[in-house]
Amino acid sequence: MAKVKGEIVINSERCKGCELCVPVCQQQTIAMSDKLNSKGYHYAMSINDECNGCINCALVCPDGVISVYRVKLKDAAVA
C-alpha cells in the first residue's frame, strides 16, 4: 500500500515528445497526447492518479520540463 502520493506538472509547451519518460514510469501515469504543442510535438501528459512521485520521469527528461510533487499520506487518507 502506497504511503505517498505524487503529482507531476509537465510544461507541455517545452516538451519535445521524446517519450523517454513513458517507460520509466512504473505507475504507467504518463502517455503522449494526441494533440500537438506549438512546436509540433506530441507532448507527454499525466493520465491517471497513480503517480507516487518517484521522479524517474523528471530524471530522464532531457529538457527538464517535468516538476514532481509528493505528499506523505496520513493513515486516515490511506484508509
Partner: peptide, 11 residues
C-alpha cells in the same frame, strides 16, 4: 499536492 512545499524535483 502541487504546492511548493511538496516539490521534490524540478529543473
Amino acid at each position: 499536492i502541487c504546492q511548493q512545499e511538496n516539490l521534490v524535483y524540478s529543473r
